[in-house]
Design a protein around this nucleic acid. Structure first.
Lengths: 238, 238
DNA sequence: GGCAGTAATCGTCACCTTGACGTTACCGCT
DNA sequence: AGCGGTAACGTCAAGGTGACGATTACTGCC
């Protein structure tokens, strides 16, 4: 197949230097009080047998966000309730031994789901991010940047609720923060902060009975997207 | 030129759907108390005569950051003192009529320079961001995202100093914030904030004489990269 | 030199947020 | 009913910030 018909007006250096473009997903969730990333075991070369981010190539009529959404649906089986945003592009000249591949990382934050089904005969599994090292390609770096993006965004957005099911308690939400930041947060101060922030949480006036202790209230996520003022990871040395 | 030799192990859908990859620069500076972006007048189709972001294709052995740095040097003539970071990837199927082109936006924050020289016979000029509309391709959107990134980063980083020359006064720095945020800031509170933040500003103990009023002190930027606690654009309705 | 003008710098105060931590409310269990 | 456990509410001091007054140190003019 020749491609010289394309890119009229561009010189040969462009036509001779084309890229395959893939989208790689950093799908994060909170499982067992730990931040976890969804990985797929590679069944073919290169990096056969290694764990890698799920991903795929961008289709002929697709935009990047389309590809990311399509792959996310393929992974979790349905239109997910969480959050999806672009991370960055990665295009090191030797990042893929098969040829010149540019990957666009996408970050997805999802509620904890059942164990994932195999995708295209490849094993998929959640891994705590602390143990997700030695991945294929440059996926270690992409995971690291995704995790750092998630950590930072919890500070000044309400995205933590994306890790929660449609209805959740304040404690559920606090455990998300504690898992993502790997810190402990005072439950009383946390409750004051999130319930006093306009539009973060909508009380449903229903209680969760059956557990030990005083039954907590259920909340739904509100319309607010940003936290003003933010909730800072490292306190300002007060 | 055939490309079927590349991408062993990938199916034909990959080989038949390759992208040219370009880097587009959103170069921002503060001129005349306004945030301005560096644009180039296109001399060829498509969008002949329109203003566009400076950019170019990624070379065979280049990483994206290499391309961005190379183009920035070509634009401003020398290794610049400011800041350069990746914005995002843009790959809409019809964003370039010549073919499938993925652009990776890079954001550069520079001190105010002399009027730019023409680049490759194309006119280059600073435009206030408020007037930078109707650009070629999807560059309106890329500029908007770059400006928003810059606005957000001034809140919680010391990047505002990237808009300043090596030595600058507190008022210079405040005018950067005011230009980028399009707000007015109380000079006394601003001075207290930036001079009390450890590592933001290093006093040079030299004064600028010749102007009206009390001569201000000159500062250099310090090692700090983040602002803790941040300086928020919209006050928390105090 | 003395004075007004101007801008940088320092100071003050009230308000808000937050960290630390005590107290009360409401459940299941025995 | 008593108890343990968790949720929810209250209290207080410390620190940061907005609003704004006061002071300082220069230039330019008379």
């Amino acid at each position: 197949m020749t491609i010289t018909a394309e890119f009229p007006g561009c010189d040969d250096s462009v036509r001779g230097n084309l890229f395959a473009v893939a989208v790689d997903l950093v799908v994060l969730t909170v499982r067992a009080d730990e931040l976890a990333v969804l990985l797929i075991k590679r069944a073919e070369k290169p990096f056969e047998g290694s764990w890698a981010l799920p991903g795929g190539f961008v289709g002929p009529q697709e935009d990047l966000a389309d590809t990311a959404a399509r792959e996310l649906v393929a992974l979790v089986g349905r239109e997910p309730a969480g959050h999806l945003e672009q991370l960055a592009g990665y295009a090191g000249p030797s990042r893929d031994p098969r040829g010149r591949v540019l990957s666009v990382g996408y970050l997805a934050l999802l509620p904890d789901l059942a164990d994932p089904e195999p995708v295209d005969d490849r094993v998929a599994a959640w891994h705590p991010v602390t143990e997700a090292t030695g991945l294929a390609f440059d996926h270690d770096r992409i995971v690291a940047e995704g995790v750092e993006r998630a950590r930072a965004k919890l500070e000044y957005t309400t995205l933590a609720a994306s890790f929660c099911p449609p209805e959740f308690t304040v404690t559920d939400l606090r455990k998300v923060y504690e898992a993502v930041w790997r810190t402990e947060i005072d439950p009383r101060n946390f409750q004051r902060k999130v319930t006093s922030t306009d539009g973060f949480l909508i009380p449903t006036r229903t209680l969760v009975t059956g557990g030990r202790g005083r039954p907590p209230q259920l909340f739904r996520r509100g319309d607010a997207v940003s936290l003003h003022p933010p909730m800072l990871r490292e306190p300002s040395r007060q």
